[in-house]
Design a protein around this nucleic acid. Sequence first.
DNA 1: AATGAAACGTTAAGATC
DNA 2: GATCTTAACGTTTCATT
Lengths: 168, 168
Amino acid sequence: MSTPLQSSDSVGNSLDKLDRAILRCLQANGRETYDVIGERVGLSPSAVLRRAKRLEEAGIIERYVALVKPEAVGLGLTAYLNVRLEKHTETHKRNPMDVFRASVQTWPEVVECAALTGEMDYLLRVVVADMSHYSRFIMDTLLKHPSVQDCKTSFVLDRVKATTSVPV
Amino acid sequence: MSTPLQSSDSVGNSLDKLDRAILRCLQANGRETYDVIGERVGLSPSAVLRRAKRLEEAGIIERYVALVKPEAVGLGLTAYLNVRLEKHTETHKRNPMDVFRASVQTWPEVVECAALTGEMDYLLRVVVADMSHYSRFIMDTLLKHPSVQDCKTSFVLDRVKATTSVPV
DNA sequence: AATGAAACGTTAAGATC
DNA sequence: GATCTTAACGTTTCATT
């Protein structure tokens, strides 16, 4: 029998140097060919393919996406939005938190949402065309939501850094 | 005069329905084949290819990337970090803002950074392995930076929504 | 109608898997 | 070997004259 104690073992345990190198490549360019990646990390294309597939199946690579420049499609306004929810949950109603989370998934303007420690419960990143759209989203959607108590907006003046790459 | 009311006119102006449909596909799956996209939007593969290339060359599609799950590579802690910079710029020194922005690019833990309206100047999203790494980043790197006055951390308890797709 | 520009589909060759 | 991408060519459509 054989516990392959080589370099890989990719999944189920932590990643080796090669896996991490492959991840760095694919985070930089999700369409890099296995040939080029192989040259860069010192493997054959088929070896890179095997590892990449394993990384995908293990859920380490969540998915591949195209990144679209918001301004180029007429979405010129980004804002971070701190949202505080109602605390008191009436017994016959669903938890305000659950209701809010479900709604967030359906709002396309909200591209990102995280539950935070600290005073404000949630931080949302919102991408819209302009101020009038933003205003409508706040007034007609967010503040009318039963779970929302109040919110505070910070507009993005400049995107200093916008990576999707985590430091592996 | 002429308002071209057809379907195309892809670039240089605003996008038509087909371009937007293609963008939605590629935002959802950056490796979708032109064949499948074509079926979905009602075009031949080569027509999809031509439009996709135009969208790339026009910078509307910035790039293609693989998304890696941070926890799966041992990066279990994400934080949002509000940073306030020094205001007084001594004449013989470089602008604190420029210095800070340049540094941010070199810190791999900082995956996102935006200049904001409001009290705090910058909002950073920071991804690290654990609290001790975070602590080291704050103490040894961020707060020692000459441009930084102070900062405030909010830790992410839960990623409710994490899209890279903007609503086209 | 006739012309020109722009975009589509088919086909076949070349990469990539 | 199979699939996917890419380039070439002929066809269609629409705007203009």
